[in-house]
Design a protein around this nucleic acid. Structure first.
Length: 480
RNA sequence: GGCCCCUUGGUCAAGCGGUUAAGACACCACCCUUUCACGGUGGUAUCAUGGGUUCGAGUCCCGUAGGGGUCACCA
């Protein structure tokens, strides 16, 4: 196989790009790039009923945002266009007629009523090839009279369709279990069943990567490739991504999409990294990977056959790993939207806050809740001064706080090092343990059981004036 | 219901006839430590089930159960 690898992602513009779709795109991209091939984006908009305004742009934006770049597509061009199916109507008709000539399809004039009468006890109707037996004259007459028609695939009544899937292995389906599906609808548009075959061939797609829902209909497509005398592509079907063991993850159920997770503050690279790991694992047993590392490591034998359940907790962890690696500047820049949501925006040095926050949040979304106490300070439960392990309580606090207040007031500079030295001195002077002093002052400054950073970091951030104000307030709470 | 496919800890998963059945997330404990984190160490927990084949089965075969997909003028 020395022909150039060409894969494609072919979504229909029916709304947001969901996680499963994005993974399909990602694998197609990874596979193509792994072998120096091309990755193509094709829009499958043959169902005008389901078309949702603006979703094509969402597809472009999401892929771009996720770093999945396509070599050819509606907005970037290419030599195999157009890349939007609704612009290829004539092509489909031409090939449909060709297929009829080759005996692989036929005109069908049956109406809804007749189809209804074919329904079986399970409510399924199965076309009986009625129109396959129309004479050429009858067909011509009907066509000329302008009677509505569809074009159906002519599937053999016996035999078995077999093929080899690179993930699932050998798949066989009996022709008798397949219906003569519609290839061209009465509105003149092709169905997926036909358009995907024609386009994949015309666009030179070598590897078809798609969801496992097509596993059992693929023999139908092979019948067409064979009838046309075209080379069948290599098939790679992917297991579904589940929300829980019973339900597939889907936008229709209101499950989060890529965009939703970005909005929640997950690091983009982590989202892409995580979904790559759903249904695929590299041989090297590594999990955190950049896109280029994924390309290097991607291999089809690492794709699993069974569905995997989407675990937000693990994606959250990965997101945290990416955050820990960021510089303070990058954290501030990328978390900007979330810093803006916090009450402290514009009032503090965000780079200093970033340094404290990086190991304490896994998504940018957690930023506001972690730092709002810098602006919000008031009544709190004095029981916070009691901490068994630190050996401290309200009475210790009554000794520590006034001393700390006096100390703070005496400091001419209020940076971390000065504070550290001063606080250590205070510990010695009071003859207490570090924890006793630090715990009490930190609580007095924050009113919180836990904070990002310790006393010195907090005092430096708040500044001398605010620190003294808070100490005064806390002393009052303790009845001093 | 017919057909196709799937089944290793709570989750993602490695394994491809012989292993003490990796690793990660989550969880728990301990260490580090001025809180919380980070980091470090350790721990709990898995081969759906019944038959075969084999000296030997998570790995191969068959059945059963459970789950998913599909059976549209949707993709």
């Amino acid at each position: 196989m020395n022909e150039k690898v060409r894969t494609r992602f072919a979504p229909s513009p029916t709304g947001y790009l969901h996680i499963g779709g994005l993974r399909t795109a990602l694998y197609g991209y990874l596979y193509a790039k792994k072998y120096g091939g091309d990755f193509i984006l094709r829009i499958e908009d043959t169902d005008l009923q389901r078309y949702v305004e603006g979703s094509v742009e969402i597809i472009y934006d999401t892929l771009k945002d996720a770093g999945i770049v396509y070599d050819e597509g509606p907005d970037v061009g290419g030599n195999y266009g157009p890349y939007v199916q609704s612009e290829r109507r004539e092509i489909y008709h031409q090939y449909a007629e060709e297929l009829i000539r080759r005996g692989g399809a036929y005109y069908c004039f049956c109406d809804k009523e007749r189809m209804e009468s074919l329904r079986d006890e399970n409510g399924n109707c199965r076309y009986d090839k009625h129109c396959l037996h129309l004479s050429e004259e009858e067909i011509k007459a009907k066509l000329e009279s302008g009677a509505p028609y569809v074009i159906r695939q002519n599937i053999p009544e016996e035999g078995t369709g077999s093929y080899h899937d690179l993930v699932y292995g050998d798949i066989s389906v009996d022709f008798k279990d397949m219906e003569d599906g519609i290839l061209i609808k009465s509105d003149g548009m092709p169905t997926y069943n036909f358009a995907n075959v024609v386009d994949d061939h015309l666009m030179g797609i070598t590897h078809v990567i798609r969801g496992s829902e097509y596993l059992s209909s693929t023999p139908k497509y092979n019948l067409m490739y064979d009838a046309f005398g075209w080379q069948r592509p290599v098939y790679i079907h992917l297991p579904p991504i589940m929300k829980d063991e019973r339900h597939k993850l889907s936008k229709r159920n209101g499950d989060a999409s890529y965009a939703d997770f970005v909005e929640k503050g997950f690091v983009k690279e982590a989202i892409v990294n995580y979904i790559a790991l759903l249904g695929w694992s590299p041989k090297e047993n590594v999990e955190k990977m950049s896109l280029s590392e994924m390309i290097e490591r991607f291999s089809l034998d690492g794709i699993s056959k069974s569905p995997s359940i989407f675990d937000e907790a693990k994606m959250r962890w990965l997101s945290g790993e990416y955050i820990k690696e960021m510089s303070d500047e990058e954290f501030v820049a990328r978390g900007d939207a979330f810093f803006r949501k916090s009450k402290v925006y514009g009032k503090y040095d965000l780079k200093k806050i970033a340094a404290l926050l990086k190991t304490r949040v896994e998504t940018f979304g957690e930023i506001p809740e972690k730092i709002d106490f810098l602006e919000e300070f008031g009544e709190y439960d004095v029981a916070l001064f009691t901490h068994k392990k630190m050996k401290t309580d309200e009475n210790i606090a009554r000794i520590v706080l006034p001393a700390a207040r006096e100390l703070f007031a005496s400091l001419s500079s209020f940076d971390f090092n000065t504070l550290h030295e001063a606080m250590m001195g205070l510990v010695g002077k009071l003859g207490m343990k570090n924890g006793q002093v630090f715990w009490c002052v930190r609580v007095a400054l924050s009113g919180r059981e836990s904070t990002p950073g310790g006393v010195m970091e907090l005092a430096e951030l708040l500044g001398k004036e605010e620190s003294l104000k808070r100490l005064d307030f806390s002393m009052k709470l303790l009845g001093l």
